[in-house]
């Protein structure tokens, strides 16, 4: 019978692994709300109102339905999952009280849409922020 090696993994390695796990979890959730440069900061309530159709002054932009960033954004900003959000917009759309946010392909397209229209608002991963947009709310 072969004896399996029973080398102990140093404590420092465990710290390293858990640290990596923690930081990657944090990164998945690091989402920021962006508008054109010069925009004033917004509260979470302000952003939530725009994305559930209660404020029509701003033009919300969505990432595709399959995007994990989209799911995470709604959870953090509105406290609702995508089915609930879809139910909210179904009621608004089919009573003509609102038009659901326009979907664009990715973070780059969000930045482009937001940078060219002072009324447009979008959300992207924090890592993708550059000088073309202004962070109006950090959702981490």
């Amino acid at each position: 019978m072969k004896k399996t090696s029973n080398k102990r993994i140093p404590v420092s390695t465990w710290f390293g692994i858990s640290g990596l796990l923690l930081s990657s979890l944090a990164r998945a959730g690091d989402i920021v709300v962006v508008m054109a440069p010069g925009a004033a900061p917004l509260s979470k309530d302000d952003v939530s109102k725009v994305y559930v159709g209660r404020n029509k002054d701003l033009k919300p932009i969505d990432l595709p339905e399959t995007s994990p960033v989209r799911e995470e954004f709604y959870k953090k900003a509105t406290g609702r999952d995508l089915s609930q959000i879809k139910a909210v917009w179904s009621r608004l759309a089919f009573t003509s009280e609102g038009t659901p946010p326009k979907s664009v392909a990715d973070d780059g397209a969000v930045k482009k849409a937001v940078a060219s229209d002072p009324k447009a608002i979008g959300y992207i991963a924090k890592a993708d922020v550059d000088s073309s947009v202004k962070v109006v709310l950090d959702l981490d």
Binding site: A87, V88, S90, R91, F94
Partner: peptide, 8 residues
């Protein structure tokens, strides 16, 4: 106004 929209 949304009674037909069951999904809502």
């Amino acid at each position: 106004d949304s009674r037909n929209v069951g999904y809502a």
